[in-house]
């Protein structure tokens, strides 16, 4: 069964595009056929994060307006077998795509792909409505900051209003050192506030910037902590129950604390 997944957040800059790219690459490495759709029309970015910016011929607006077929627009990633990208249009505006067009496109793509992952623009306007229109489930990306968590809460409300009941949280850019000091909300704090199922955590990691510089998603770097976080999420999307990453376990104090704190 194909899955149409929208990656959304409300707030900008929390890692939607990075998450989309990493999950796409990760799922293709698991042998799945994946197409990523950048719906951020006018602010195209998924192409550069994936390192496919020089290979764009057609874009999302060309597909939905019938200028080309979905197959023609989907750029095949030569490094990762089974990974494709439909890039956003850069020179048009967000109203160039309608909700019905997105629903039709997602239905069509289900015939050819195991996973259709939609990178949603920031905000809650037309671009957001288009991005969620054809989705069966949603991944909400947030960071441990008040502004990002607040926007995530708003997005969860809007997803429920649009009958996307299956939605999961990704907490991105966790800094274990700050969590330990009590200067950053931890996973439990955020889950408690948002009251939503967690699908994964991604620690803050310099490798993300380095890998984005190169256009090679961190999920393929076995040494990257963020890459490990993304690999775990791809496994869970694929139906495998893998344990949550242990951020405390790497330190002496963390180990000590774990020995003494009882599980509630």
């Amino acid at each position: 069964m194909s899955q149409v997944i929208v990656v959304t957040s409300g707030k900008g800059g929390v890692g939607k595009t990075t998450t989309t790219a990493n999950l796409g690459v990760g799922l293709s490495k698991l042998g799945k056929k994946v197409v990523l759709i950048d719906t951020d029309i006018g602010l195209r970015n998924l192409d550069v994060v994936l390192g496919l910016e020089n290979r764009i011929v057609y874009d999302l607006v060309d597909v939905v307006t019938g200028v080309c077929t979905p197959k023609q627009a989907a750029i095949k990633d030569k490094r990762f077998d089974g990974l494709f990208l439909i890039p956003a249009a850069q020179t048009k505006d967000k109203d160039s795509v309608t909700i019905e067009q997105m629903q039709d496109l997602c239905e069509k793509l289900k015939e050819d792909y195991d996973f259709i992952i939609i990178d949603c623009p920031a905000g809650i306007e037309q671009g957001f409505k288009n991005a969620i229109a054809g989705a069966d489930k949603a991944l909400i990306v947030t960071t441990p900051e008040v502004s990002a968590v607040r926007d995530a809460d708003r997005i969860i409300g809007l997803l429920e209003a649009n009958e996307i009941e299956e939605h999961y949280l990704i907490i991105n850019r966790i800094r274990p050192d700050m969590v330990r000091r009590g200067d950053m909300m931890n996973v439990d704090d955020i889950i408690d506030i948002l009251n939503i199922d967690l699908i994964g955590i991604v620690p803050d990691d310099q490798d993300i910037i380095i890998s984005t510089n190169k256009g090679e998603p961190a999920v393929v770097n076995p040494k990257s902590l963020a890459g490990q976080g993304y690999r775990n999420i791809t496994e869970r999307l694929n139906g495998n129950n893998v344990p949550l990453m242990d951020l405390e376990g790497n330190t002496f104090l963390g180990k000590l604390k774990k020995l003494f704190t009882k599980k509630q």
Binding site: V146, G182, D183, D189, L256, K257, T261
Partner: peptide, 25 residues
Amino acid sequence: LDLSRIFGRKNNSKDAAKDRLKLVL
């Protein structure tokens, strides 16, 4: 014995974040 209480300081900034978030939500 709750060691996290001994090691962790009270009134740290994440508690402020949580309280403010709860109210605004």
